[in-house]
Simulated scan of single mutants.
Amino acid sequence: MKLLIVCTGNTCRSPMAEALVRKRLPQVEVQSAGIFAHDGSPASHQAVTVMEEAGVLFAHQSKPVTRERVEWADLILTMTEQHKQLLLEQYPHAAEKLHTLPEYASQEAAAAWKSLQEAYADLETKRVRFASSFSGDPNTLQREFMHAHQHEIAHIQELEASMPAADIMDPFGRSIEVYRTTLKELEFYVDKLAEKIHNEK
């Protein structure tokens, strides 16, 4: 498998994740890149420090996302939903292999996203049906619909509130403690990713 991990500047989160994948999944070919990265910037000092604390030594120089890297990858994992959307806009043909790290690695997160998307779709179907049969004042349509479907709306709000984080926190420019927290997040999801890949063999 060829894995591309993407963040913003390719100096913190994605190189940390890349180093963890190299250690945890030596059979996977892995690269990292940044949507707004320049070639050749070093990893942030705090990233190097927390990785050394975790016993993971790595030398890193930043690289930008390119069409060649997107084509190279079998799987592209982003640090945030925004990164994913930006890549989808630029490389729509890569949609099938493009996910955030949390949604791809965690079955619980994937199941929660699926439930929420299904609830949204179901409510939208009901909204279209309701609008087509509604004969009253158009200004009252939304209020009447929300009143008629308050239980479904409350269910969606509960799902939204219980959603696992879709994004890996950006530690850039923040304290060493924030970097340690980000590393713990990355370790959790890379472990989940390793379990998933092993189980798919």
Rank of each mutant, 00 (worst) to 15 (best):
P102D: 05
H45V: 11
K23W: 01
A54F: 13
P15T: 04
V50A: 12
E200L: 13
R143G: 02
N199W: 01
K97M: 09
E96M: 10
D74L: 08
Q85S: 12
E144L: 05
K192I: 02
D191M: 05
R127S: 13
A47H: 09
A37R: 05
Q46R: 06
A95M: 03
V128S: 08
A121K: 11
L20H: 03
I35A: 09
D167P: 07
E18H: 04
S135R: 11
V21M: 03
A154H: 11
Q46K: 10
I176S: 11
E18A: 02
R22A: 04
A165M: 10
T11Q: 13
E187S: 08
L159Q: 14
D167C: 01
C12N: 03
Q82H: 14
P15M: 07
A105L: 09
E187L: 12
E18G: 01
H83P: 13
I76G: 01
R180I: 09
L98G: 04
T8K: 12
L25N: 02
T140L: 11
N199R: 13
T80C: 14
E108T: 12
W113E: 08
D137F: 04
T8G: 15
M16K: 08
A37Q: 05
E185M: 15
Y91C: 10
D74Q: 03
E144T: 04
T140P: 00
S133N: 11
Q27F: 05
S44G: 09
I76M: 07
A154M: 09
R180A: 13
N10W: 14
A119K: 11
S14F: 08
L123S: 12
G40V: 08
C12K: 12
I76D: 02
S44Y: 02
S115Y: 00
D191R: 11
D170T: 03
H155K: 06
H151T: 05
A17T: 14
L4C: 09
P171K: 03
F188G: 04
L101E: 07
A166T: 00
T11C: 09
A47K: 06
L3D: 01
P164K: 02
R69L: 15
A95I: 02
A119F: 00
E18R: 02
D122H: 14
R24P: 01
Q46A: 15
E68F: 01
E160Y: 03
S135Q: 06
A43Y: 11
L3Q: 01
H149R: 01
K184P: 00
K196E: 07
G34I: 12
V50P: 10
D137Q: 05
F172V: 03
A112P: 04
V30I: 11
L186T: 10
T181E: 15
D167A: 01
R129K: 13
A166F: 00
A59Y: 12
K23I: 00
F130K: 08
S162H: 14
W113S: 01
D137A: 03
S162L: 05
M16G: 11
A111S: 10
R180W: 03
I168F: 00
E103S: 15
L3Y: 01
V56S: 09
R22C: 06
S44E: 11
S115N: 08
Q142W: 06
S135V: 06
V28H: 02
I168C: 02
E71T: 11
N199E: 07
L57I: 09
M16P: 08
K126Q: 15
T125A: 15
S44M: 03
A17I: 10
H60L: 15
Q107K: 10
I35D: 10
